[in-house]
Amino acid sequence: MEYQALHNTPWMHGSFWVFVAVVIFAILAGRRIVGVLTSMLDARTQQVRDALDEAANLKAEAEAMLLEAQAAQAQAIKDAEQILASAQAEAARMAAALAAEAQATAKRRERMAMERIAAAEASAVNEVRAAAIDIATAASAQLLRDTFGAAADAAMIDQSITGVPAALRQAI
């Protein structure tokens, strides 16, 4: 009695050897395919790493630029505050100078006005004196005309002539 199972051994059939050939082909081809896929994945991984490194470098540069910009902004604000402070000090100094100049101008004008007033007073006093002298002269002339006439003049002349010898005696 022969066992049917022994006659049907798998290696005896052609489909078994086709299967073995396919498995061997798959193993050999699979190694190459896996190698190619692995190298592609490794290349892609390297590209991603390079991109991440570049992104990290760009981020570091951007942060450095941001710090520089913030420092420049802080310096600009500090400079602006200094410029504003100096402008305010300059404005205060100019205001004080203009106030002093205005005060000096006012004093000079006041002095000039006082000099003009003094000159006008002196002129007025001189005019009043001249008028007083003219009036006194006119009054004296009028008084002399009224007080002394031709007869009174002759009497005064006679009296003066008679008093000359006595005046000469007193003088010697």
Rank of each mutant, 00 (worst) to 15 (best):
V23K: 09
V23P: 00
V23N: 11
I24M: 10
I24V: 12
F25E: 11
F25H: 08
I27S: 13
I27M: 13
L28N: 14
A29I: 09
G30R: 00
G30Y: 02
R31Y: 15
R31G: 15
R32S: 12
R32N: 05
R32W: 11
I33S: 04
I33P: 02
V36Y: 14
V36G: 13
V36Q: 08
L37I: 12
L37R: 13
L37E: 04
T38C: 12
T38D: 15
T38W: 04
S39M: 12
M40T: 10
L41H: 08
L41E: 13
D42N: 15
D42K: 05
D42F: 05
A43V: 09
A43F: 05
A43I: 06
R44L: 07
R44H: 10
T45E: 10
T45G: 09
Q46M: 13
Q47K: 07
R49P: 00
A51P: 04
A51G: 10
A51F: 05
L52D: 09
L52T: 15
L52C: 11
L52W: 15
L52I: 03
D53V: 15
E54A: 09
E54V: 11
A55G: 10
A55Y: 06
A56N: 01
N57D: 08
N57Y: 08
N57K: 11
L58V: 06
L58Y: 00
L58F: 10
K59T: 08
K59I: 07
A60W: 00
E61R: 05
E63V: 05
E63P: 00
A64I: 02
A64M: 01
M65S: 08
L66G: 08
L67A: 14
L67F: 05
E68H: 10
E68D: 07
E68S: 06
A69E: 01
Q70V: 01
A71W: 03
A72S: 15
A72T: 03
Q73M: 10
Q73C: 06
A74Y: 06
Q75L: 10
Q75T: 08
A76E: 06
D79K: 09
Q82E: 04
I83P: 02
I83L: 14
L84P: 01
L84S: 12
A85L: 04
Q88R: 14
Q88N: 07
A89T: 00
A89I: 01
A91H: 03
A91W: 01
A92S: 09
R93Y: 03
R93P: 00
R93N: 07
M94I: 14
M94W: 10
M94V: 07
M94P: 00
M94Q: 13
A95G: 12
A95C: 12
A96Q: 08
A96C: 11
A97Y: 07
A97T: 13
L98E: 14
L98I: 15
A99D: 04
A100R: 11
E101S: 08
E101T: 12
A102N: 04
A102F: 03
A104Q: 11
T105W: 08
T105E: 09
R108Y: 05
R109F: 12
R109W: 01
R109C: 02
R109S: 00
R111L: 02
M112Y: 10
M112A: 14
M114Q: 06
E115L: 09
R116D: 14
I117W: 15
I117F: 11
A118V: 03
